[in-house]
């Protein structure tokens, strides 16, 4: 699903060269739940921006769901991002001017061949899935942090992505809300979604099937969490899908 080999990311200015990732390799199989951990400044976010096709890597190879992303132009990366990846951000990143339903529809606007009715159907189902179907006309400012993150998760799910990328998904939530959001992510994983979550919180990381620790831009070790594996295998391989969605 996500195969990175010897990936490096170097940020250059006229005077400084910063190695944010060095020879980083990671292979995430379909249906896995992987937590990427590490201290602040270790390269977690850089990993996520490269995994999410938000930035280009400097060296190495990256194959996402069978597509070698090296050399893709901006349009191709945007399209691939839209079709394959669902983002869950720490700051939710909902659009304040749009109501909940419109927010969830946003990625579908950039998908070819999806009409207004289909967009509406998928968004409605995604909101039902996260338990917010009664809030479709609300605006983000009218929701709690936990509800906003659930809307963001619905938005990530609406496009039936192959991979969910979560960046500190509970970082802006209190304990109770964080627990609810993590329960939802685990539930999605049990249903077959491939999840890669970046976090600095060891308790959250412990809920993943596998942990990858980054220090100074390099993977320092891979810790397996066997307790999660049977559940994943029991569900079989396959990404999260909105029922009836054909991609």
């Amino acid at each position: 699903m996500l195969d990175m080999r010897n990936v490096s990311k170097i940020y250059r200015t006229t005077t400084v060269e910063t190695h944010a990732l060095r020879d980083f390799s990671l292979d995430v199989r379909e249906g896995e739940f992987v937590a990427v951990t590490g201290p602040s400044g270790s390269g977690k976010t850089t990993f996520l921006t490269i995994a999410g096709l938000l930035e280009e890597l400097t060296h190495g190879e990256y194959v996402l769901d069978g597509v070698d992303v090296h050399g893709l132009d901006d349009n191709q990366r945007s399209r691939l991002r839209n079709e394959k990846i669902g983002f869950i951000f720490q700051a939710f990143n909902l659009i304040p001017d749009l109501n909940v339903l419109d927010n969830v529809e946003v990625p579908l606007h950039y998908r070819r061949g999806i009409g207004a009715a289909e967009r509406r159907r998928r968004a409605t189902q995604a909101l039902e899935r996260v338990g917010l179907s009664a809030r479709v006309r609300h605006y983000p400012a009218e929701l709690s942090g936990g509800q906003q993150q659930r809307v963001a998760i619905a938005r990530a799910l609406a496009g039936s992505p192959r991979l969910l990328l979560a960046d500190e998904p509970t970082g802006n939530l209190d304990t109770a809300m964080a627990r609810g959001v993590m329960d939802l992510i685990e539930e999605l994983h049990r249903e077959g979604a491939t999840v890669v979550m970046v976090t600095h919180d060891p308790d959250l990381a412990a809920r993943a099937e596998r942990n990858v620790h980054i220090v100074d831009g390099m993977a320092s070790g891979i810790i397996e969490e066997p307790s999660m594996r049977p559940a994943v295998r029991a569900q079989g391989e396959g990404a999260f899908r909105i029922p009836g969605a054909e991609d």
Binding site: R81, F87, N93, D97
Partner: peptide, 16 residues
């Protein structure tokens, strides 16, 4: 600016 970045992250091309 932030919401434009979010739209781009969610798959909007520059032309969008």
């Amino acid at each position: 600016t932030r919401q434009i970045g979010v739209r781009r992250a969610l798959g909007a091309r520059r032309v969008d």
